[in-house]
């Protein structure tokens, strides 16, 4: 991976840099729904992580292998039974949370396997999404590129929704970053932020 590739990835996926900023060098990382392995590659190059991805899509699995990324073919919906308790420093679910069916069970599994969890997801409370709904249509944007009839997203949520989920499920949020594009959003994040990234651990 060249410096150009890293810069390109960082521009395409602003959540990558946000995630990387939380991960110390040499950490162990499990990336759930790792796609073509871009995030793991990015983390390997920028943070020297020891990582594995979990993916179910055949083409993505080939891409991961071509990218030199360890990938385990598995269905996240059936749990993470191949992975031992506490075997990773971080378990990441990047832009996948909203497409999982058994979301609650998966977050629990993330915190069984990992010391900390990291999720990123499109904020459905972002003003453009609200405006779309107000106009009477399901929003379509770069973060939510699908039409209502072909979307894999079954569990869209807002920042408020996710945080109340965490409170109700004994999940302790350690850090949050909210962004629109590459720009950090600090004011009215649930309205002005298009993407959210959370770092969390099991509550006491």
């Amino acid at each position: 991976m060249t410096q150009n590739d890293i810069a390109r990835l960082a521009a395409e996926r602003p959540d990558f840099a946000a995630i990387a900023a939380w991960i110390p060098r040499g950490a162990s990382v499990l990336d759930l729904g790792c796609g073509d392995g871009s995030l793991l590659r990015y983390l390997r190059e920028t943070r020297a992580v020891r990582g594995y991805g979990v993916e179910i899509n055949d083409l993505d699995i080939v891409s991961c292998i071509a990218n030199g990324v360890n990938v385990i073919h598995d269905d996240l919906e059936s749990g993470l039974s191949d992975f031992e308790d506490g075997s990773f420093d971080f378990v990441i679910l990047s832009q996948t949370l909203q497409a999982t069916r058994h979301t609650e069970a998966l977050i629990r599994e993330m915190l069984r396997v990992g010391r900390e969890g990291i999720v990123s997801f499109p904020n459905f409370g972002y003003w453009r999404n609200r405006l779309g709904v107000l106009r009477g249509n399901m929003p379509v944007s770069s973060e939510l590129p699908y039409q209502w009839y072909d979307t894999p997203n079954v569990h869209l949520c807002t920042l408020h929704d996710f945080e109340s989920f965490c409170r109700n499920h004994n999940v302790a949020v350690l850090e949050r970053r909210v962004m629109t594009g590459e720009r950090e959003v600090s004011m009215l994040p649930n309205l002005l932020g298009s993407t959210a990234v959370y770092r969390f651990q099991r509550g006491l």
């Binding site: 162990s28 020891r50 594995y52 055949d58 699995i61 991961c64 292998i65 360890n70 990938v71 385990i72 073919h73 598995d74 191949d82 992975f83 031992e84 075997s87």
Partner: peptide, 20 residues
């Protein structure tokens, strides 16, 4: 998967593909 698990346990580089 019974091959994969001990390899994960021992932190080996491993990829696993299930072919339809």
């Amino acid at each position: 998967r019974e091959i994969v698990r001990p390899l994960l346990h021992n932190r080996r580089n491993v990829s696993y593909a299930e072919i339809t």
